[in-house]
Amino acid sequence: MSLELHKVLLVLSIANSALVRAALEVRIESVTKIFGDNETLFEFNFRLVGRQRLLNGTMIIHVDLDNEYDVSNEDSNIPKSTEACPIKKGEYYARNVEVIADNWVQYTKLGLVRSILVVKKDNVVYGGIDVVLVLSQKIM
């Protein structure tokens, strides 16, 4: 093989490796319910199932979640909300929910990410959930 052909093959292999895209792989490490200070009006009853650690369970809302309540994220880089979206009281379920973070690459760092979601009214906590995720890079 000539030297020129080796150069062409080298350039093609470098160009091909540059096309490899990076994405994130997410594993839910833990999910913990947060109880209210005086009473728990928002119950997050979730558990992790199987090797894939899929999220299963229910969210029970005992009162309408309206603009009187603040939903906030603490210990996280997710933007904080100052207004709650209106959700009617009732029981809501999640079955085999998998967190996919392919488009999070530009927003977050690798490693452990902890997110605490709490529902408050007048600085009193009425329930919430504490989620720990492990983010690692996968090659596509």
Rank of each mutant, 00 (worst) to 15 (best):
M1Y: 10
M1S: 06
S2Y: 04
L3G: 15
L5D: 08
L5R: 04
H6K: 06
H6L: 14
L10M: 14
V11G: 11
L12W: 10
L12V: 13
L12R: 06
L12Y: 09
S13T: 14
A15Y: 04
N16E: 12
S17I: 10
L19V: 12
V20D: 06
A22G: 13
A23K: 06
A23H: 02
L24S: 00
L24V: 06
L24G: 00
E25V: 04
E25R: 05
V26K: 01
I28T: 15
E29S: 08
E29W: 06
S30L: 00
V31G: 02
T32L: 13
T32A: 14
T32D: 12
F35I: 08
F35M: 10
G36I: 02
G36S: 10
T40R: 00
T40P: 02
T40V: 05
L41G: 00
F42S: 02
E43M: 05
E43W: 07
F46H: 01
Q52L: 11
R53I: 07
L54D: 00
L54G: 02
L54K: 00
N56I: 05
T58R: 01
T58C: 03
I60K: 12
I60C: 03
I61M: 13
I61P: 03
H62S: 11
V63I: 11
V63L: 12
L65Q: 10
D66H: 09
N67T: 15
D70Q: 12
V71E: 10
S72W: 04
S72M: 11
N73Q: 11
N77R: 06
S81M: 14
S81N: 14
T82K: 08
P86M: 06
P86W: 10
K88M: 10
K88I: 10
K88N: 13
K89P: 04
K89G: 03
Y92C: 01
Y93T: 14
V97C: 08
V97W: 07
V97M: 09
V99E: 04
V99I: 15
V99F: 08
N103M: 10
N103A: 11
N103E: 11
W104Y: 14
V105C: 12
Q106S: 11
K109N: 09
L110Y: 01
L110W: 05
G111Y: 04
S115G: 10
S115C: 13
V118I: 04
V118H: 01
K120G: 00
D122L: 07
N123C: 11
V124C: 09
V125Q: 06
G128L: 01
G128N: 01
V131N: 00
L133E: 11
V134R: 10
K138L: 07
K138G: 05
I139W: 12
I139F: 12
I139V: 09
M140E: 14
M140A: 15
